[in-house]
């Protein structure tokens, strides 16, 4: 009997997709909705893995989805961090600057309307400035990587399990007996 297809290649492709969606400014807004980009990466991993199966191979199992999601999430976290750093080095903190300009417009409007007192507006401006500077710090990048290494595998596993629920074989394999 043939062995199951290698998961590593599929995990690299789907992890790269997760990393691209999460690391490229603008595209990463997709993750603002409950990590939708990472979920979709997990579904993609399961779809691609299912395509690799040929006749004579053992059937696709839910544990494959679990492992594939885990691997894709970890690869995705590293790729996202790498892309973020590369973009930071080449273009500077463009994403942080964009967010700052967006928030500053809002602050200006609130200040004009008199909704916020001027001392609070100044305080918010200082916080925004420090947030932009923090985004380029090594500790901030490593902190983000740490959080992504927890969050991305969780959501990629859920995405892969959802993909398994959608793309599972018509006749599911015999479940592992549990006592």
């Amino acid at each position: 009997m043939l062995e199951k297809p290698n998961k590593f290649r599929v995990a690299l492709i789907s992890g790269a997709a997760i990393g691209a969606v999460s690391g490229i400014p603008g595209l990463n807004l997709l993750n603002c909705c409950c990590c939708a980009g990472v979920w979709l990466g997990g579904v993609l991993a399961m779809y691609l893995y299912r395509q690799e199966f040929t006749e004579g191979m053992p059937p696709l199992e839910s544990s494959d989805a679990l492992l594939l999601g885990l691997m894709s999430g970890v690869v995705g976290a590293f790729v996202a961090t790498f892309l973020s750093v590369a973009i930071l080095v080449v273009f500077g903190p463009i994403e942080a600057e964009f967010l700052r300009s967006l928030f500053e417009k809002g602050l200006d409007r609130l200040a004009e309307e008199g909704t916020l007192p001027s001392d609070m507006v100044d305080q918010f401006r200082d916080q925004l400035e420090s947030a932009v500077q923090d985004s380029a710090r090594v500790s901030s990048i490593l902190g983000n990587l740490f959080i992504e290494l927890i969050v991305y595998p969780i959501f990629a596993i859920l995405g892969a399990l959802l993909g398994y629920a959608f793309f599972r074989p018509k006749t599911p394999p015999q479940a592992t007996p549990v006592q």
Partner: peptide
């Protein structure tokens, strides 16, 4: 709606991994 799609494969997958 999500648990109805996620829980059955999750329970099955964890049981398989632990069994192996």
């Amino acid at each position: 709606f999500l648990p109805f799609y996620l829980l059955p494969p999750l329970l099955e997958a964890v049981a398989q991994v632990i069994g192996r």
